[in-house]
Design a protein around this nucleic acid. Sequence first.
DNA 1: ATCGGGACCGAAACCGGTTTCGGCAACGGA
DNA 2: TCCGTTGCCGAAACCGGTTTCGGTCCCGAT
Lengths: 362, 362
Amino acid sequence: MQPNGASNGTTQRVTINDLAEALGLAKGTVSRALNGYPDIAESTRARVTRTAERMGYRPLAQAQAIRTGRVRSLGLVLNTGNADLHRPFLTDFLDGISRAASEESWTLTVSTATGVEDEVTSMGRLIDERKADGFILPRAMYDDPRVALCKAREVPFILYGRTGDPEGCAWYDISGEDAMRLAVLRLAGFGHKRIGFINGSRDYTYAHLRHDGFLAGMAEAGLEANPTTMAEGVLDIPAGEAAGRRILSADAPPTAVVCALDLAALGLYRAADGMGRQVGRDLAVIAYDGIPDSAVANPPLTTFSVDNKAAGQRLARLLIARIRGIDLTHLRELAPAHLIARQSDLLPDFDPDQTTRAKLNA
Amino acid sequence: MQPNGASNGTTQRVTINDLAEALGLAKGTVSRALNGYPDIAESTRARVTRTAERMGYRPLAQAQAIRTGRVRSLGLVLNTGNADLHRPFLTDFLDGISRAASEESWTLTVSTATGVEDEVTSMGRLIDERKADGFILPRAMYDDPRVALCKAREVPFILYGRTGDPEGCAWYDISGEDAMRLAVLRLAGFGHKRIGFINGSRDYTYAHLRHDGFLAGMAEAGLEANPTTMAEGVLDIPAGEAAGRRILSADAPPTAVVCALDLAALGLYRAADGMGRQVGRDLAVIAYDGIPDSAVANPPLTTFSVDNKAAGQRLARLLIARIRGIDLTHLRELAPAHLIARQSDLLPDFDPDQTTRAKLNA
DNA sequence: ATCGGGACCGAAACCGGTTTCGGCAACGGA
DNA sequence: TCCGTTGCCGAAACCGGTTTCGGTCCCGAT
C-alpha cells in the first residue's frame, strides 16, 4: 500500500481534517496532539500519531506557516563572485545542509548574488516573502553586512566562520588558526627557521585568525616572523604566484611557506617554478583547504583539509536549533581541520644550516 | 522611506487586509484586481496596483499556496554521486536558475541525493510536502525514472538534456551532436583521416546523440569510423586515460580524437603522455564541455563550451511557463555549444600521409 | 453533598490569501 | 417604461493548518 495512495482512487493528500474525521476528534485536538501540547491525554496522543503515521499524514508546511510564521526552510544565498564556490566546496556543502535539513523535514532554498550588496538585497527579498526561517551565512566577513541585516530584521542566522563582533551570533567554524599554528610547528620541527606566510583577505575573519595562528606558531617555535616574507589578500592562483615571487626574492628568502589557502600555494608553485626553486625539494609548503587540485599538484600538496559536508550538516542543525530558540551559547562550535600529509612539506635532504647558506649565495 | 518600513514603528509586513482597508475595498476585490480577473474595472485595478506598489505589498507565497496549490518555487535535486557537479557547472547553473526565478519572484529549493533512487525519493518528499511546483531535471538519462515519477504524480518538469521518449517532456538542451559533427569536420578539414571518438555513458541521452553526431560528421567528411578507435562509458580522467591507451594502441591509431567530455580528453592527455605521443603535436584533440581545467591543460584544450548559466536561466523560465500551463510544444529548445579554439587540435606540421606512415612504423 | 480544580477535548476564531456567488447600478433594446 | 444584460464589486466561504477559549467530566477535599 502506497503511503499516500488514497484508497478512494484519487491522489489527494490526507489533510488534518481527514485525520480528525478518521479519529473522531476535532481537528484542533489532532493538531495539538501532534504538536506536543500538554492538554492532550497521552493515550489519545499515541492514537493520533499512530494513525497519522498509518494514513501517511504530512502537514503542509506552507499551511502551518501562515499561522506560525515558519516555513521550515533554511535560506542560503551564494555569492557568485566568490571564487571559492567554484570548488567542490559547494557540492559538499549543499549536500551536508540538505541532508541535515531533510532529516527534520526542513528544506533548503538557495539564491545567488554577485557582490555583497546584492547578497543583502537577495536576503531581504527572502525575508520579506518569508521564504526562509533563517540563514546560513557562508564565508563570514570581519564586518559582515549580512549579520547586520539579520539582526535588524530579527531573523535567525548562523555563520560559517566567525565575525569581528561575535555578539548575538551563532557560528560554526574550522580552526584555521590552529592549523596555521600546527603547520608552523611542523615545519619548525623539520628544522626550518625562515618560514613565510601567504594569507587571504582581511575582509574575512579567517585571515585575521590564521594570521594570529601563524604568529602564535612562530612564537611557540621560538622563531621570528619576517614581514618581508609575508603576504596577504591572496585569493587565487595568479595572486599567489605574484606573492610567491615577492616572498622568494626577499633578502632572506624562506625555506618554507605556510599558505592560508590551497590556491595561494598553487600560485606559489608557479612562482617557485619560475625562479628555479622546486617545491618539495628546496622549498617546503603547507597549505589549507584540501581542494582536489591539491592532490594532483606536483608535488602533491600537504594541506589541512576541511570537511565541508560535515560543516554543512552541522550548520543546518545548529541553525534549526537557533530557530527553535536554543540559546546562543550552545550554538558556537569550533572543529579542527585535518592534516593531509603529502609531499610538499618534507624536503628529502634538507639541512637547515647548509641550505640556508646555499640560498644566500645563490 | 523604506519600502516596508512601517510608519507606525512596528516592522509588520503589509497584508492584503491592510491594502484593502487603505483602498476602501473588499479584500477579495483587491485580490482579484491584483491577479488580473476580468470583472474588475481597469481604473480600480490601476488604483490597486499603484497603492500596492506604494505600500510595498508583497503577497505571502505560502498563504496563496494553501488555496492555489502553488508555492512559486522551483525544485532541483542534485545527484551528489555525479562527478560533473563538482565542476563550476553547479555554481553557474544555480546562478542562472536563481536569477531567472527571482525575476518572477519565484524561489529555488534544492535538495541532494546520492544515486538515482535516492533522487526519486527526495523528489517524492518535495512533491508530497508541496515544496516545489515543478522540477528541473539536470543530466537527462535515456530512460529517466525522474520523468516517470513526475508523470505519475502529474507534476511539471523540464529536462536539461533530452530523454529517450520525449513524449510529454519539456526540455532544453545543447546540441552536443552538432558539436561532435563540427569537431569531426574541423579535424577532417585539417587533413585527418583516422579520427577516434571517446564517448560518455549511454545511460545518458547525450551519449547517444553525440555518438550519432560523430558518425554524421564522419560520413559527411567521407571518412569511415573505426570501432577499435572508439570508446564509451568514459566519465572521468582515469577512464579517459584507460580508453586513450586502448585507442592509441590500436592497429591503425588515430591522428585525431574527438571526446564527448573534457574530462575524457584530459585523461587522453595522460595516455598520450605515457605513450610517447604529444597532444597538439602529433595528436589532435577536440572535446566538449568547456570546464576551466581545459584552459590550463597542456596544451590548452580546444573544446566546445556550454554556457550553464544561460542554460539555468532558460530552464527556469521554461519551467515556470510550463507550470503556468504553456503548451509543451513551445517548451523545447536546442542551443548550440560554442567552439573555443585553443592549441590541442591544430598540429603545427601535420602532413596527413607522412604522419600516418611514421606512426605505422613507430 | 458541595465545591474547587485538573485533565481533556470541542468549537470557533484566526492566519493571509483566493474564489465563488450574488447583488446593485447603469445601460441598451423593445 | 420595463426588462434583460453587463460591469463591477462586496460578502462570505474556503484552503489547511494553529491557537485560544471555554466547557465537560471526574476526582478528592471539605
